[in-house]
């Protein structure tokens, strides 16, 4: 690894903001990452969430993954857990939809109903 010096700079720059992050209750974005999810395109969806959350500097949001959620035909599936709120499940996700979910749901607090599992089953 060659650019470890740059990393040292990053460490110094981010130390302050990280202490702030610890105090907030976190929102979790969880992506189904079993064989079914991966084959359906979960990796680019995960990357899109990471990128957009980083771009928007949403320090209270963490991205993580889980195994098979059990509805393989609806993958990629993304679940959003916010403190003191009901879980929201988005289905058949794409990187483009991920960007909209970050902006509408996580930033502006408006659930993107048309991508949710409830809407799909209607």
């Amino acid at each position: 690894m060659k650019s470890l010096k740059d990393l040292e700079e990053i460490r110094k720059k981010t130390l302050d903001s990280i202490n702030m992050r610890k105090d907030e209750e976190s929102t979790r974005v969880v992506i189904g990452m079993a064989t079914c999810g991966i084959a359906a395109g979960a990796r680019p969806v995960l990357l899109a969430f990471m990128d957009e959350i980083g771009k928007r500097n949403l320090q209270h949001v963490t991205v993580s993954q889980t195994g098979c959620i059990g509805m393989c035909k609806l993958e990629p599936i993304v679940e959003i857990f916010e403190p003191n709120k009901e879980k929201v499940t988005y289905v058949k996700m794409t990187p483009e939809k991920a960007v909209r979910v970050v902006n509408d749901h996580l930033v502006n607090n408006r659930i993107v109903t048309e991508y949710t599992i409830g809407n799909y089953e209607k």
């Binding site: 650019s3 470890l4 460490r11 720059k13």
Partner: peptide, 28 residues
Amino acid sequence: EVRQVLGDDVPLDTPEVVVWMRESIDNE
């Protein structure tokens, strides 16, 4: 190695660190 530089207080999932990891792996 990355953890050694970052110490205990900067986690690996910090957005700036993620960007650095992607770029340095791709470049090399």
